[in-house]
């Protein structure tokens, strides 16, 4: 299992495609928390459950003004079809070319398999990683860890 960048580390910035012709960078969300959810692949059963769960939990994330971003090595076209099929209401980013480059920088890549770990990062408004977690690849990590991290974050800093 990869070792994810630990809490306290500045989150590496990136710019990835979120849809054909659209790019999302981490810096776009400066000033609010970001949840980065790396996952192995669109369409695989456990990921589906995990992303479907996060889709339902979005209102809870929004209470902390947090932005959820899903990341896998799938292409934008694959992401577009997957998001439409599952009615996902958050961006899926394509870590597609060079393949897995962003996942590698976060310590969330499985070189032998060629896809990302099921890794979670909660990044604060200043771009510092405040919590990270890698789940066993076949286990849905749920949202409880993310919510605890967001709670701790807002407890530590006074929201505007």
């Amino acid at each position: 299992m990869a070792t994810p960048l630990p809490a306290g580390t500045p989150a590496p910035d990136f710019a990835l495609s979120s849809a054909p012709g659209q790019t999302v960078s981490l810096a776009d969300f400066r000033g609010r928390p970001v949840i980065l959810a790396f996952y192995p692949a669109d369409w695989s059963p456990v990921c589906g459950d995990q992303m479907a769960l996060y889709n339902e939990v979005l209102p809870e994330f929004e209470r902390y003004h947090a932005q959820l971003l899903g990341v896998s090595v799938d292409s934008v076209w694959c992401h577009t079809a997957f998001a439409r099929d599952r009615k996902l209401h958050f961006p899926l980013l394509a870590d597609f070319e060079p393949k897995g480059a962003v996942s590698r920088r976060y310590g969330a890549y499985r070189p032998g398999d060629g896809f990302s770990e099921r890794a979670l990062f909660v990044i604060d408004g200043e771009g510092i990683i405040r919590w990270s977690y890698v789940s066993p690849i076949d286990v849905n990590p749920g949202a409880d860890g993310i919510l605890r991290a967001l709670e701790a974050l807002t407890g530590a800093s006074t929201p505007a």
Binding site: D49, Q50, L53, E56, V57, E60, N140, G142, A143, D144, L147, R148
Partner: peptide, 12 residues
Amino acid sequence: DFRSGVTSGVNG
């Protein structure tokens, strides 16, 4: 109910 489930580790 839903929120208590999410924070308790209900994944599905």
